[in-house]
C-alpha cells in the first residue's frame, strides 16, 4: 500500500468510528436537553441495539425487520426507564439522578450478561459484496451503511427539531418547562419521547457498527465515554457541535492509531478533552 492509500484507509475508519461517536453524542444531547441530565446508560443501549439485532438476524428474522424491531425495543426500554425510574425522582438533585443513571447502566449491563453471556457476537454485514477500492484503500460496504444511516438520522433530527410542532415543543420544554406547560405542552410526555429517541439512536449506533465489531455486554463502555467526550467538546447542549466533535474525535483516533500508535489514541483524545475544557469550557464551537 502507498502512503496515500494508508491515509485514505485511516480516513474511512475515522469516519466510521466518528459516526458512531456522533450518534451516541446526539443521543446524549437529546436526553440532556429535556432532562438536564447525562444518561450514563446510553452505552448499554448501544449494546442492546447491536445484540438484539444480532440475535434476531441469527434466528432468521429478515435484516430490515430486525433493524426496526431492535430500534423499537430500545426505544420502549428507554421510555420505560424514564417513566419508572427517572420520573419519580424529578424533585431530587441532579447528583442523585446521575447516580441513578449509573445504576441503570450497571443493571442493564448485568441484564445483557444474563441474556447474551460473555461471548462476543458479530452481526453479518447489512449487504454482501466486495469492498470498493478507493485510491488503493478498501472501503467496506458496511461503512457506506454507517455513514448513510448517520446522515439520515441527523437529517431526521434536524427536521424534527426545526420543522415539526412536536420537535419545537420539545425544544420549548427543554428551555423552559414552566412556559411550555402553560402552552399546554405535556412536559412529561415530551420527556418520555426524548428518552425514547435517545435510546433508539444509541441502539442504532450499536447496530450500525455491529458487523464491524465483536460486541459483548461490556462493549458500550468506551463508546459511551467517547460520545460523552464528543458531547462535551461540542458544548453539551449542541447537536451540531456534538456531531462535528464526534467525527473529529473519530478521525483523531484513527490517524493517531495509524500514524503513531494505538497506545496513544486514548491519551490524545483525553488530552484534547482537557484542552477544550480548560480553554473553551463551553465547547469548541460555542460563540461566547
Amino acid at each position: 500500500m502507498s502512503d496515500i492509500s494508508h491515509l485514505v484507509q485511516f480516513l474511512f475508519s475515522g469516519i466510521t468510528v466518528g459516526s458512531v461517536y456522533a450518534l451516541i453524542a446526539v443521543s446524549l444531547v437529546i436526553v440532556y436537553k429535556v432532562s438536564q441530565l447525562i444518561c450514563f446508560a446510553q452505552g448499554e443501549f448501544f449494546v442492546f441495539g447491536a445484540l438484539t439485532m444480532t440475535t434476531l438476524v441469527s434466528k432468521g428474522v429478515p435484516v430490515p425487520l430486525a433493524f426496526f424491531l431492535s430500534i423499537i425495543i430500545a426505544m420502549a426500554l428507554g421510555a420505560l426507564i424514564q417513566q419508572v425510574l427517572i420520573r419519580p425522582m424529578k424533585n431530587t438533585s441532579v447528583g442523585a439522578l446521575i447516580v441513578m443513571t449509573i445504576a441503570i447502566s450497571l443493571a442493564l449491563r448485568g441484564l445483557a450478561l444474563l441474556i447474551w453471556g460473555r461471548e462476543s457476537h458479530v452481526l453479518p454485514p447489512f449487504s454482501r459484496g466486495e469492498p470498493i477500492q478507493v485510491l488503493g484503500a478498501a472501503l467496506q460496504l458496511q461503512i457506506l451503511w454507517i455513514v448513510g444511516i448517520t446522515t439520515v438520522v441527523l437529517f431526521l433530527i434536524w427536521f424534527f427539531f426545526e420543522k415539526t410542532p412536536a420537535g419545537i415543543a420539545m425544544r420549548a420544554c427543554a428551555e423552559n418547562p414552566y412556559g411550555a406547560s402553560l402552552m399546554g405542552i405535556n412536559t412529561q410526555k415530551t420527556t418520555l419521547v426524548a428518552w425514547a429517541w435517545g435510546s433508539g439512536i444509541g441502539a442504532l449506533a450499536g447496530m450500525a457498527v455491529a458487523p464491524m465489531l465483536f460486541t459483548q455486554y461490556t462493549s458500550g463502555i468506551m463508546p459511551m465515554v467517547k460520545g460523552f467526550i464528543a458531547m462535551s467538546i461540542g458544548g453539551l447542549g449542541s447537536i451540531v457541535g456534538s456531531v462535528i466533535a464526534g467525527l473529529l474525535l473519530g478521525l483523531v483516533e484513527s490517524y493517531t492509531i495509524g500514524l503513531i500508535s494505538s497506545k496513544f489514541s486514548d491519551t490524545i483524545v483525553f488530552a484534547l478533552l482537557m484542552a477544550v475544557l480548560v480553554f473553551r469550557p463551553n465547547g469548541l464551537f460555542s460563540r461566547s
Binding site: P165, I168, R171, A172, E175, G179, M183
Partner: peptide
Amino acid sequence: SHVPEGRQIFGSLTVKQNLFLGAYVNP
C-alpha cells in the same frame, strides 16, 4: 390562557415558533 409573570418566552426559538407554540393544543 395564562401569560405568566416574567414572560417565559422561549428565547432560543424564533418569534414565529413561539407564536405557533401558543396554538400548540389546537392544531
